[in-house]
Simulated scan of single mutants.
Amino acid sequence: MSSLKLPSRVIDAHHHFVDTRESGNIQTFQKFLGSLLKDEVYLADQYHSDVVEPLKQEGIILDTSVHVECMPDDGAQEAAWIESIASNDHKCTVAVIVGSADLTSPTIDNDLTKLCATSPKVHGIRWIVDCVGKFEPNTATHVATTRHDGVDYLRGSNGGYDGEAVPEFENGFSLLAKHKLSFDLQCAPAQLPAAARLCARHPNVPVVIDHLGKPRTLLGPDDEEHKDNSTPNPQELAKWRAGMKAMAEVPHVYVKLSMLGYAIPGWIKTPQRREFLQSLVREVVALFSPQRCMAALNWWKNGAVSDSDFLSDVGPTPMEYVQFIATCLEGYSQEDVDRIFYGTAKEFYRI
């Protein structure tokens, strides 16, 4: 690994704090999350021990990070909670808060005003919209969409999912420019073309695609049957490629190199999986350029969950992740490497 161009400084562009204990925040704004993850706690001290210190021991400084909403019942309350942690815990690295707001709400303008007032760190919004149909545990539809009856806000809900953005959603999306907020787009690959059209209509709303555009288990699940598979699912790969190409053509759209194990669960186990994932990351960087790519750990529980969203029981340590991304960037300049690990997030999130 000595020949790799490693960064000396990184910004973690995506991580989460949670506390769903009865004695914690579940009674105020984390009831939905608490229904999924009972008594889950992950706070600044744990993040510091799991991420900041191990990287520091390898000569890499992480003193700045972006906290992304974690499906709160009340986005303003969650943002105020994160602001309190950042203000009172010297180990907290959070410089930017990506808050939560239902963009379809009839009170969205006031909601965004209220959210921004909770903290000067609120620089963006995420509202999870992954939807390929009714929620099932083994599909790309995210459990978060059960909060709004599984409506596909990007393609409508006319049965064929072949329409345009729901008007109420697009109205709320357009208001992000007024409040000087960016948008974290978390959606399924099939939704990306419609998302590209939405983004193109609103050039004053900076957008970052979460988690590599979320291609799912392209080499199959992390199990014995598929461990040596090196042939990707052609339909899913083509769908993802078409969507990412459409998004890359919109100049104010960026992308996070994160949650890589969702695309290839268990990628650290076999050379075949690692090599194919490396090709995907290189493809994205070539498509968007280092100027519009940012590295992110998605850290909140451990390496396995942060990397694969429960699709594998293994995942990289923070340093293994940094080394893997650096491997994907072989042939790029040190300036490009530093841009992806630090500069892009600094620019996009106005740090």
Rank of each mutant, 00 (worst) to 15 (best):
M319H: 09
I325L: 12
V52A: 05
V253Y: 06
L112S: 03
L37C: 07
D74M: 10
S23I: 10
L112V: 11
H142S: 15
G34C: 12
L112Q: 04
P203F: 11
I97L: 04
H202M: 11
F288I: 00
L192I: 11
R197Q: 14
S49I: 05
I325N: 04
L112T: 07
V10H: 08
V208W: 05
S65D: 09
G261Y: 08
L185E: 14
C116R: 13
I108W: 00
A242D: 14
R155C: 14
V281Q: 07
G213M: 13
E225Y: 11
G315R: 00
D309V: 05
V143C: 05
P206R: 05
G163A: 12
P271A: 15
E40M: 14
T270H: 11
Y262F: 15
E236S: 13
Y262K: 10
M294F: 13
Y254V: 00
L192H: 14
Y342W: 13
Q323M: 09
K134W: 01
P72H: 09
I351E: 07
C199Y: 03
L219G: 11
S35V: 13
T118F: 03
Q334K: 09
T327Y: 09
A194H: 08
K227D: 12
M244V: 10
V96G: 04
T118Y: 01
K256H: 03
R292G: 11
E22D: 15
D149P: 00
P232S: 04
Y254M: 05
L192C: 08
L277F: 07
P193L: 02
L37M: 13
V68I: 14
G133N: 07
T28S: 15
W299P: 02
W81G: 14
Q323I: 11
L6K: 02
I351T: 05
E58C: 14
M319I: 15
S2D: 12
L297E: 08
V305G: 01
V166N: 04
A177Y: 10
L311E: 03
I11V: 15
C293K: 06
G150Q: 06
R201I: 06
H15Y: 04
L115K: 07
E22L: 15
I60D: 12
R126Q: 06
A296V: 10
N110C: 06
D39Y: 06
S100P: 01
W240L: 03
H142A: 15
I351Y: 15
S333V: 01
K245L: 09
G220N: 08
H252M: 03
D336C: 10
E283R: 01
G163T: 09
E58H: 15
A188N: 05
D336I: 03
K56S: 15
E83C: 00
S84K: 13
G261A: 12
L218S: 00
S84V: 02
W240K: 00
H211M: 08
R21M: 07
F341H: 01
P120C: 02
D222Y: 13
T270Q: 08
K301P: 00
R339I: 12
C92S: 14
